[in-house]
Simulated scan of single mutants.
Amino acid sequence: MKLLKSLTIAAFAVTTLAASAFAAGHTKTVVETAIASPDHKTLVAAVKAAGLVETLSGDGPFTVFAPIDAGFAELPAGTVETLLKPENKAMLQKVLTAHVVAGKIMAGDLISKIEKHGGYLNIKTVSGDVITARVDSKGVYIFDESGGVSRVTTADVESSNGVIHVVDDVLVPK
């Protein structure tokens, strides 16, 4: 398991270097950091439509599993457009807050906790849903309550009020 942990942390270290392009230091909030990312335009639009900018710009700390635009594009046709409608604001808030955990969980700490819990770690999100983290030789995976899985592609993008782990797919709460 130590070798697995070392390999996984090494993989995260490599992807974290790529994160510096959109992290720009620790003076930006998680929202400002996402705004600076070329791969999070849909997420930023959704956060704005859901009225969560002020909340996610607060003190935190927050851990955000931030799906990339390509992850949103994989949702069934019309899903994003439907969620962005004002009458669906509560549903959009639930989807987005299912990607947010109270507290700051760095990748190394997450991996250690997963290992201590037998390879899987259940994590309660701000929405009240539970996501499950799992680690293997290829990386860290996050499972949602609907059976979907998302891979962490970039870890430990620090901000002034938390940390972002970029994921390749949208987590869908029940």
Rank of each mutant, 00 (worst) to 15 (best):
L3T: 13
L3M: 13
L4S: 07
S6P: 03
L7A: 01
L7T: 08
T8F: 09
A11M: 07
V14Q: 11
L17P: 11
L17A: 15
A18C: 13
A19L: 06
A19F: 13
S20F: 10
F22K: 09
G25K: 15
G25F: 14
G25Q: 14
H26M: 13
T27P: 13
T27E: 13
T27Q: 13
T29G: 11
T29Y: 03
V30D: 04
V31L: 05
E32Q: 12
E32S: 08
T33R: 10
I35H: 09
D39N: 15
H40C: 03
H40Q: 07
A45H: 05
A46T: 05
K48Q: 08
A50W: 14
L52Q: 03
L52M: 06
V53G: 05
E54K: 12
E54D: 12
L56P: 07
L56I: 04
G58F: 13
D59A: 12
T63N: 07
F65I: 02
P67D: 04
P67V: 00
I68T: 09
I68E: 06
G71A: 06
F72I: 01
F72Q: 01
A73M: 08
E74S: 12
L75Q: 05
P76E: 11
A77R: 15
V80Q: 12
E81I: 01
T82Y: 15
L84D: 04
L84K: 06
K85D: 15
E87G: 13
E87T: 14
K89M: 09
K89C: 09
L92D: 09
L96Y: 11
H99Q: 02
V101D: 15
A102D: 15
G103R: 14
K104Y: 06
M106H: 10
G108Q: 08
D109S: 10
D109R: 07
L110C: 07
K113F: 07
I114K: 02
E115F: 05
H117T: 04
G118Y: 05
G119E: 01
N122A: 00
N122C: 01
N122R: 00
K124I: 13
T125P: 04
T125F: 08
T125A: 06
S127N: 09
S127I: 00
V130P: 03
V130A: 02
I131R: 03
T132E: 00
A133Y: 02
V135H: 01
D136V: 00
S137T: 05
K138N: 04
G139N: 02
V140E: 02
Y141I: 00
I142F: 06
F143V: 02
F143S: 00
D144W: 04
E145W: 02
S146P: 13
S146R: 02
S146M: 07
S150R: 01
R151N: 05
R151G: 06
T153Y: 03
T154Q: 05
T154N: 09
A155G: 11
D156L: 09
V157Q: 04
V157L: 10
E158A: 11
E158I: 14
N161K: 00
G162L: 02
G162P: 07
H165C: 10
H165M: 09
H165Q: 12
V166K: 02
V166Y: 10
V166H: 04
V167I: 11
V167S: 07
V172I: 15
P173A: 12
